[in-house]
Computed example of a mutant assay.
Amino acid sequence: MIRIENLTKSYPSQIGPQYIFKNLNFEFPTENNVAILGKNGAGKSTLFRMLAKSEYPDNGRVITNKSMSWPVALQTGVHPQMTYRENTRFVGRINNVRSLSEYENKVQEFAELGERFDLPVRTYSSGMRAKLVFACCMNIDFDIYLIDEATSVGDPLFRKKARVSLKEKSEQAGVIMVSHELDQIREFCTSAVVINDGELTYYSDLEEGIDVYMHDANQKKTKK
């Protein structure tokens, strides 16, 4: 269960607060893998970050009894002065991983960085940092994985590996995904939540949700 209660979220601007959501109430289904769809500016990323608790509402709350990953594509929580190994152990501790040494070995093998595992993260490329975050996340068993353009991580071989790993997770646990790639949405999701004018509508049929989303997007283009 993921329940949104009386949630309001706005951002300041020169002409006053710009409301993304106002007194929103909604219950996210967790029995299906869900895509969050909506035109640009609808609030997809904002909602996603609030589900992850990496951003907070002005008022209201998100309630859940599920363990959720951080947004997989975001390189949050990585300390640049610490080594890959030190970061891995830190992530393991805050997520209550039982065997840190086993977890460390799994992450090291998955990320395929060899001896560079003991170098400071500040010496890594953005792709290597993304591998760190992805490998750390995929080796923890969460109830729900928050996926944000995650299969764009790393080189082509690693991206293939990432897709396989995500597919396995999507069959064992819940997935909530934000992506502009409909092929990726169709690969990992079975249902959709469409955001329109600050309201959320759930579609148990993914293709129905995509049709509504595409219709809304085409209407916006026509008005322009």
Rank of each mutant, 00 (worst) to 15 (best):
L132F: 06
P71Y: 06
P120I: 09
L146I: 05
Y145H: 03
E27H: 04
M68T: 09
P156W: 10
E115Q: 06
L166K: 02
V153S: 11
F142C: 10
N40Y: 11
F134Y: 09
G41M: 07
A173H: 13
N87V: 11
L206C: 02
E187A: 13
K106Y: 04
D141L: 07
E112W: 03
V91K: 01
S152Y: 08
S99F: 10
K160A: 06
S152R: 13
E171Y: 00
R49S: 02
I20M: 05
P156G: 12
R159P: 09
S126L: 12
E86F: 13
Q184D: 15
E171L: 11
R49H: 04
D148Y: 10
F26I: 12
L206F: 08
G77K: 07
F158T: 02
I4L: 10
G174R: 00
V62M: 10
R98E: 15
R163K: 15
E102G: 13
N33I: 08
R98T: 15
T30Q: 10
N105W: 02
L132I: 05
L182Q: 07
L24K: 02
R89Q: 03
I63G: 04
I2L: 07
A130T: 02
T222N: 11
N23H: 09
E27L: 08
M128A: 08
L37K: 00
Q81L: 10
I140T: 07
V175E: 04
F21Q: 09
V78R: 06
C137F: 12
I4D: 08
M138P: 08
S101A: 15
Y19R: 09
Y56Q: 08
N218K: 13
D143H: 05
Y19T: 10
E102W: 10
E104T: 15
K22W: 07
Y103W: 07
T151W: 00
K39A: 05
S126I: 04
R116N: 10
K224N: 14
F90D: 06
G154M: 06
M138A: 06
Q184I: 14
V175P: 01
D205I: 14
N65C: 13
Q184E: 15
S13G: 15
V153A: 11
Y84L: 01
